[in-house]
Simulated scan of single mutants.
Amino acid sequence: MEIQVFTMDSFTNLPFKGNPAAVCPLAHELNDDLYQKIAAEMNLSETAFVTPINPSDTFTSGSRFLLRWFTPTVEVNLCGHATLATAAVLFQYKKNINPTLVFETRSGDLAVSKKKDGYLMDFPLNPPTQVDPKEFKDFIRVTVGNLPVQGVFLNTNMRKLMIRLSDSCDRAMLTGLNVDPTTLLAIENEGKVKGIIVTVKGSADHQPGYDFYSRNFSPWFGIPEDPVTGSTHTILGSYWSKELGKTKMLAYQCSSRGGELELEVRDDGRINIGGEVVTVLQGIIRL
């Protein structure tokens, strides 16, 4: 059996930046064990498997597809950068004729449309709830050390803990964090927290005027640090929209690769996430 595979860098217009995802278009579904083995072999933060829902559809004519995402160790419920990458593959290489594609996923229907520069995803919004920092003091210590913290928040749906640094901190302090994934795993093994987001307010003085910065650590999913995470911006976008009093924002995730996300929080409880995609590899998996 031969499976076509693409490696796409999402949320960037430069190769080797943004977040790489592998995309495998499949004529029909495979078994979960094989999905997981392929994802482990690709060894990227996510590998996406996309199949037509209607047997009469092709990747060129169809508008609805089944989409699943696997890290090297587990299947996940929501992934932004691999969804963006999948849409780019279907639009660019399969020459899909529809202006919008809808993916049926574990998180419901996710739509992706073409725009002038890149693509626009329609995602659910995941507001966080403020929590007592004392309950998560070990996470805070291991993640941000002695940096001042302005607030700690939890989204129970995604099991993501969000730590907001004080406004006295800047991007350089966030970038300078050195987080040990092994220590994080030792703190939490009950499943209450499956990822940590650290964020700080942006500065309008520095072009292009990012509204906020973030980093994302998910060793519980086999990802010590995710380079650019669309799904966590369903949390970050909800939070910062209220804090900044604006619905349209420009965000930057400042991992070593880095990536830019355009956000728009909507009145219907959803969020538009926009970004560009670059192809870095095309190939065949032979089984």
Rank of each mutant, 00 (worst) to 15 (best):
L125M: 12
V142T: 04
T156E: 15
S214R: 07
D180S: 14
N146A: 06
D138I: 06
N178H: 11
S168V: 02
G145Y: 13
P148L: 00
P133S: 01
L120P: 14
K192F: 08
F139S: 04
N126I: 05
E190I: 10
I140L: 03
P224D: 12
V144P: 07
F212S: 06
R215C: 03
G151S: 07
K134P: 11
T175W: 07
G209F: 00
V144T: 09
R215H: 07
N126S: 12
D170M: 01
K194L: 15
L185G: 03
T182S: 12
F136S: 13
G151L: 05
P224W: 13
P219Q: 10
I140C: 01
G191A: 13
P128C: 04
S231L: 10
Q150P: 00
F123A: 00
P124G: 10
D122C: 02
K137M: 09
F221V: 08
P124T: 08
L120I: 15
L177K: 13
R159S: 12
P124V: 05
N178A: 09
P148V: 00
N178T: 11
R215M: 05
P219W: 06
K160A: 01
E135G: 13
G195Y: 13
V200P: 11
V193P: 10
V200H: 04
P124L: 08
E135I: 06
Q150V: 00
D167H: 11
S168Q: 03
L120E: 15
P208V: 00
T129W: 05
V142F: 03
P208H: 00
M121F: 03
A204Q: 08
M121C: 03
A204L: 12
L185S: 05
E190M: 10
K134L: 15
T199W: 00
T156A: 13
L165G: 15
L184E: 14
A186M: 11
I223E: 03
N146T: 11
R164P: 04
L147E: 13
N216K: 10
P227W: 02
Q130H: 03
T156D: 14
K201M: 04
M162H: 06
P128T: 05
V193Y: 09
V131R: 13
D122T: 03
P127E: 01
V131N: 07
A186C: 09
R171L: 06
N146M: 06
P208K: 00
I196W: 05
P224C: 10
T182H: 09
M121A: 00
I163E: 04
N157W: 06
G191L: 13
V179D: 09
N146E: 14
M121V: 03
R164C: 08
T156M: 07
I163S: 04
L147M: 14
T183V: 12
M121I: 05
R164D: 02
K194C: 14
R215I: 05
L147W: 11
M173S: 14
T156F: 02
P227Y: 02
M162A: 10
Q150D: 04
L154D: 13
V179A: 06
G176R: 09
L177D: 10
N178M: 11
T143V: 15
P127M: 02
R141V: 06
G202S: 01
D180C: 14
V142P: 02
P127N: 05
G230C: 08
S231E: 05
N216I: 15
P124A: 07
D205L: 02
D122S: 07
H206D: 15
A204D: 08
T229E: 09
S231C: 10
I197P: 02
T229K: 11
K201C: 06
V198I: 08
T175F: 12
Q130R: 12
W220S: 10
R171K: 09
